[in-house]
Structures are given as structure tokens and as C-alpha cells.
Simulated scan of single mutants.
Amino acid sequence: MTPPLRKVALTAHVTSSVGWLGAVAAFLALAIAGLAGQDPQTVRGAYVAMEVTGWFVLVPLSFASLLTGLIQALGTTWGLFRHYWILFKLLINVVATVLLLVHMQVVSHVAGAAAGKTLSSADLTGMRIQLVADAGAALLVLVVAATLSVFKPRGMTRYGQRQHHVRRDGQRKQPALSARQPSDAGG
């Protein structure tokens, strides 16, 4: 990628990833408000808002983060398979996205129950606790992914080590270009 394109791709990746992290924090706040809230309207609104936030913010940002991360990895010298930290981030992103899609089924169920009637403190307690726990775990996982991006721990994969040696050896074998060489054509 050209440097300007690389910056656009990096900006898109950082924006979608940090946006995902922030949206999960908001989702966690709604889940806590829904579980601990005393006012039935607040509880009802929290769960309905969680469903909207999940489908229209969390899910798109998770896919955007995955797509822009792949573009970054494949379009730059970092590569997708050269460094362990990139593979770990890819694994975190894929697993988190799949779990989010599964988690959204629970969110939709609780939101549907909340929209249909007023939830009492005893209704769907297990699912409501699960929403808080899952959002907290997701927040922690996304912070780990962000930390990997900032610190970029050392450690190349075997593939990365081979590529590094091939590139380094290829640079050694190329002769240095000196001043213009006279041609045999008598120019």
C-alpha cells in the first residue's frame, strides 16, 4: 500500500477497534442498569437499548475491526502470519465476533421480554446476569487486543523468521549500484 492509503487503513482500523471497545463499555453500563435498576421503565429501556446498540453498533464495528485488521496485516510489511501478536489479535477478533453473534441471541430474547412487559427483579435473572458478565469479559478481551497493538510483543512465527531471513539474504546478494557504468555500445 502507498503511505497515504496505509494511513487511511490504519485510521479505519483504530477507529473501528476503539469504537467497538467504547460501545462494549456502553453496553456494559446498560446491562448493569438493567440488572440493578429499580425503575421498571429504566430497566425496560436499558434492555431495548442494548438490542439496538448490539445489532447496529457492536456487530458492525466488530466486522469493521476484523476487515480493517486484515487489510492492515495483508497490505503492510507486518503481514498476517509473521508475528505472534498479530495472530493473537486475529484470533481474539474472530472469536469475539462469533461470541458476539451468539450473545446477541440472549440480548434479543431479554429485550423482547422487556418490550412485551415490565420485567420484575426475578424475571430472566440468569440471562440478565449473563449479559453483565459477558459484556465485562468482552471489555477485558478488547483491552488485551488494544494492549497487544500498542506493545507489539516480540516473537516471530517460523514463517516470519523465514521471510525475515529471505529478505535479509536477498538484500546482501544484490550488488550496490555505483555511478553510471559505461556501456559496451560506445556511447
Rank of each mutant, 00 (worst) to 15 (best):
Y47W: 10
V52L: 13
L21I: 12
L30Y: 05
F27H: 04
A33P: 00
R44E: 12
T42W: 06
A46H: 04
L30W: 01
V24P: 00
V43K: 08
E51F: 15
Q41C: 07
V52R: 10
T42M: 12
E51A: 15
G37A: 11
P40M: 07
A25R: 01
A29E: 09
G22A: 06
A23H: 02
V52G: 11
V43P: 09
A49Y: 07
L28N: 04
A31D: 02
Q38K: 14
M50A: 12
G22S: 06
D39E: 15
T42G: 05
A49G: 10
F27E: 01
R44Y: 07
A31M: 07
M50P: 00
L21D: 06
E51K: 13
F27P: 01
T42P: 08
G45R: 12
A23D: 02
V24W: 03
F27T: 06
L30C: 03
R44I: 15
E51V: 14
A26T: 09
A31E: 04
G34W: 03
L30T: 01
R44N: 15
G45P: 11
L35P: 03
L28C: 04
G45K: 14
L28A: 08
A26V: 10
T42Q: 14
M50N: 08
M50K: 08
P40D: 08
A49D: 10
A31F: 04
A25T: 05
V43L: 13
E51T: 15
L35G: 02
L35E: 03
A33D: 07
A26P: 01
A33E: 09
A29P: 02
A26I: 06
L30H: 00
G22F: 03
A29L: 11
I32C: 09
G34E: 04
A31W: 06
L21Q: 06
A25N: 01
V52E: 08
M50W: 13
V43I: 15
Y47V: 12
I32A: 10
A23S: 05
R44Q: 15
L21K: 07
I32G: 03
D39I: 14
M50R: 01
A31V: 11
G22E: 01
G37N: 09
P40S: 11
Y47M: 12
I32R: 03
A29C: 07
I32S: 02
M50C: 14
A29M: 11
A49Q: 14
L30F: 10
M50F: 09
A46R: 04
A36I: 00
G45D: 15
Q38W: 14
G45Y: 13
V48Y: 06
V43Y: 11
V48E: 15
A29F: 07
A31G: 04
A31S: 12
V43F: 13
Y47H: 10
A23T: 06
A23K: 07
I32H: 06
A23F: 00
A33S: 12
P40V: 11
A23G: 03
A25L: 07
F27D: 02
A23N: 05
G45F: 15
G45C: 11
V24H: 00
A25G: 05
